[in-house]
Computed example of a mutant assay.
Amino acid sequence: MAPSHRSRGRAARAREPHQELDVERLTSGWRRSETRRGREWNVQPVSEAQAQKAYACPGCGQQIAPGTAHLVAWRADGVLGDAADLSARRHWHTHCWKAGT
C-alpha cells in the first residue's frame, strides 16, 4: 500500500505559524471597474458582516440597513483626482445599481 502524504502534510501545516490576514488586500480583490453611461466606476461589494452602518441609496432613496449586503461605487475617471472620487463614493442597493437607476 502506498504511504499517505495527506496526514503528513496536515501535520506540517499545523506546526507553521498562521500569517495575519491583510483585510485591505482581501477586500480589494473584489473591487472591479464598470462603465456606465460613458463613465468609469469602481464598484466594491460590501458583505452583511462588513455593513455596520445605515446608508441612503442614491438609486431609490431608501435606507440600506446595517447588516444588509450592498455595493459601494465611486468614479474612476473624475477630473478632481482619486482622493476626491473616493470621498464622493456612495452606497447602493445591489439591485438599484444593477438596474441603472
Rank of each mutant, 00 (worst) to 15 (best):
Asn42Glu: 10
Gly81Val: 03
Leu86Ile: 09
His91Ala: 05
Lys53Cys: 08
Gly81Tyr: 01
Ser87Cys: 04
Ala73Glu: 00
Leu26Gln: 15
Arg39His: 15
Pro45Phe: 04
Ser87Thr: 10
Pro66Lys: 04
Lys53Ser: 14
Ala65Trp: 02
Ala65Leu: 09
Thr101Trp: 07
Lys53Pro: 00
His18Met: 14
Ile64Lys: 00
Thr101Ser: 10
Arg37Met: 11
Cys60Tyr: 03
Arg75Asn: 05
Ala54Ile: 02
Ala73Arg: 00
Pro17Ser: 06
Arg8Glu: 11
Thr27Trp: 07
Pro45Ser: 05
Glu20Phe: 09
Ala12Asn: 08
Ser33Ala: 14
His18Asp: 15
Trp92Gln: 00
Arg90Ser: 08
Glu16Gln: 15
Ala69Met: 02
Val46Ala: 04
Gly81Ser: 07
Met1Thr: 11
Asp82Glu: 14
Gln44Gly: 04
Val23Ile: 15
Tyr55Gly: 01
Leu71Asp: 00
Arg39Asn: 08
Arg15Trp: 05
Gln62Asn: 08
Gln62Leu: 09
Pro66Tyr: 06
Ile64Thr: 01
Ala83Trp: 05
Pro3Ser: 12
Ala49His: 10
Val23Asn: 09
Pro45Gln: 05
Trp30Asn: 13
Ser28Glu: 14
Gln62Met: 07
His95Cys: 05
Arg36Ser: 06
Gly59Lys: 02
Arg13Pro: 00
Ser33Lys: 15
Cys57Asn: 01
Trp97Leu: 04
Ala11Gly: 06
Gly67Phe: 02
Pro17Arg: 08
Gln19Arg: 15
Pro66His: 04
Leu71Ser: 00
Pro58Asp: 02
Lys98Phe: 01
Arg32Thr: 15
His18Glu: 15
Glu20Tyr: 06
Gly61Cys: 06
Ala14Thr: 06
Pro58Cys: 08
Asp22Val: 08
Ser28Ile: 04
Ser7Met: 12
Gly78Trp: 00
Ala76Leu: 01
Gln19Gly: 13
Arg10Tyr: 07
Pro66Gln: 05
Cys96His: 02
Val23Gly: 02
Gly59Cys: 04
Gln50Gly: 08
Leu71Asn: 00
Gly59Glu: 02
Pro17Tyr: 04
Val46Glu: 01
